[in-house]
């Protein structure tokens, strides 16, 4: 094989590879400091309120309503960002009252009035881990400073 033929074949293969890579790359939203700190703050506020769930819901309904509103805000913020559908989907699962994370927890607390201490503690573990998946995805996104470097 001559050097010239090899060069053309290499270029063609590489061009094909690059085109495929560009086609398969789905754009992902860049990192947002606001979204990151918001998720951490909501994790802490949720776990703190959950620790009160061995008491009656009515004593804490004001705080529960505020938390629900802030969680809804985080979902809407994620949904409104372009190319951010995976994070938005995570928030949707997190706040849905018919599922079994913070949205579902607040629903059953309201319905059942009090929950057992063991359950509350175990649910804090699961819901804390669920918040960590949102935080982990956000922190793994490309930082604006990395985009500028490129």
């Amino acid at each position: 094989m001559t050097g010239k033929n090899f060069f053309y074949k290499f270029c063609l293969s590489f061009l094909l590879f690059t085109v495929i890579l560009f086609q398969t790359c789905t754009p992902v939203a860049s990192y947002s400091e606001t979204a990151y700190t918001q998720a951490i703050r909501l994790k802490l506020e949720s776990l703190e309120l959950m620790s009160k769930a061995t008491e009656g819901y009515s004593n804490h309904s004001g705080k529960a309503d505020t938390l629900k509103r802030e969680l809804r805000f985080a979902y809407e913020y994620a949904k409104g960002k372009p190319n951010n559908e995976l994070t938005a989907k995570q928030w949707e699962i997190m706040i849905n009252p018919d599922r079994n994370l913070i949205g579902g927890f607040l629903r059953i607390w309201k319905e059942d009035l009090t929950l057992t201490p063991v359950f509350v503690s175990e649910a804090q573990g699961v819901i804390g881990d669920a918040f960590d998946t949102i935080i982990g995805l956000e922190s793994g996104k490309i930082k604006p400073s990395q985009l500028e470097e490129q």
Partner: peptide, 24 residues
């Protein structure tokens, strides 16, 4: 039952995180 179903939701959240990180 809530905890077991919660773990299923958590698995879905983890899968979304991994998909997002792979795309990144």
């Amino acid at each position: 039952e809530f905890l077991v179903k919660g773990k299923k939701d958590l698995l879905e959240m983890e899968a979304l995180k991994q998909l997002g990180l792979a795309r990144t």
